[in-house]
């Protein structure tokens, strides 16, 4: 009877594992998010960057090793390249002089990023229309005032036109992110000026990088121009010689002494208790020997 009850309990204790499995979610197809960005850096290097991710528990999870096709043109699309996403779900393609791009009447390029999907992931695509902008930045000293001048022109119908009314950000890269210095709106001639602060720390020699950038611009994408010069304050980042403090590698002496005294006191008493145990054992053995002799 007892054995039967024990077996029954054993079976019951295993049951939760099976019941938990039955609550497993049904397999459904993943709906991916495809994004496409146009990046043009300071050296006029143009890159198409596409990402493939999906959302799970409100977290963005990358899809790695997926092939994405990049196209140019609207009605008649032409393949530019096939790229594969990395572990962050990102794939990049550099547009070179050899890349054949189809532009519309206004001179804009239409780029499409397309993922065809598979058994577990749905298909998805993203499209952007970009006009090639030429961004220039000059850094000059006007009456000892550090002045930044930016100018942007865009090719439309074969003619160079000022990019009037667009916003250019002036940034300085810092340790964690870019520090915004100024947000400039370009005038009718496509240019704008700003004063650069004189109290910004640079490196040991006072060098810092100034960045002019069209950021997430719906017409131009991400276009930037940068220059490094001695416009910052010289700073000394050498680590001072370590001393005893709560925030350095070596603890203050009073802390070490306090902890040592406390621990010695406590473990000393433990030692006393252990010695007592040994004494009990020795006493017992002695008594046994005496009884044996008798």
């Amino acid at each position: 009877m007892r054995k039967k009850i024990i077996y029954a309990i054993l079976v019951l204790s295993v049951l939760p594992f099976f019941t938990l499995r039955t609550f497993g979610q049904e397999v459904t197809k993943i709906t991916p998010y495809v994004t496409l960005q146009y990046l043009k850096n300071s050296e006029s290097k143009r890159i198409l960057q596409t990402t493939l991710t999906y959302s799970k528990n409100r977290m963005e999870i990358p899809l790695q090793g997926m092939e994405i096709s990049l196209f140019t043109g609207t009605e008649k699309k032409e393949t530019i390249a096939h790229v594969v996403t990395d572990n962050k779900g990102i794939a990049k393609f550099e547009i070179t002089g050899d890349t054949k791009l189809i532009s519309d009447k206004s001179g804009a390029w239409t780029f499409t990023s397309e993922y065809n999907g598979n058994d577990s992931i749905d298909a998805g695509k993203s499209e952007i229309v970009i006009k090639d902008v030429n961004l220039e930045m000059s850094l000059t000293l006007v009456d000892t005032i550090k002045t930044i001048t930016v100018k942007a022109t865009v090719m439309e119908n074969g003619k160079e036109k000022p990019a009037a009314g667009e916003v250019v950000k002036i940034l300085v890269p810092r340790m964690f992110s870019n520090l915004l210095i100024s947000e400039l709106t370009l005038d009718d001639s496509g240019s704008a000026t700003a004063e650069f602060p004189s109290d910004l720390p640079g490196n040991k020699e006072g060098n810092l990088t100034v960045l002019a950038k069209f950021e997430e611009n719906p017409v131009f994408g991400n276009v930037e121009k940068s220059e490094t010069l001695k416009w910052g304050l010289t700073t000394d980042y050498s680590v001072p010689k370590s001393h005893r403090a709560l925030w350095t590698k070596t603890a203050p002496k009073w802390m070490i002494y306090t902890l040592s005294v406390l621990l010695t006191g406590v473990w000393g008493h433990y030692l006393f208790a252990l010695i007592s145990l040994i004494r009990i054992n020795i006493n017992a053995k002695r008594k046994a020997r005496e009884e044996y002799k008798i």
Binding site: S276, I280, N283, A284, K285, K287
Partner: peptide
């Protein structure tokens, strides 16, 4: 039990 037999000395130590 470490050979504890309940002698007076063992009681005292314990």
């Amino acid at each position: 039990s470490l050979g504890f037999t309940g002698t007076e000395q063992q009681h005292k130590i314990l």
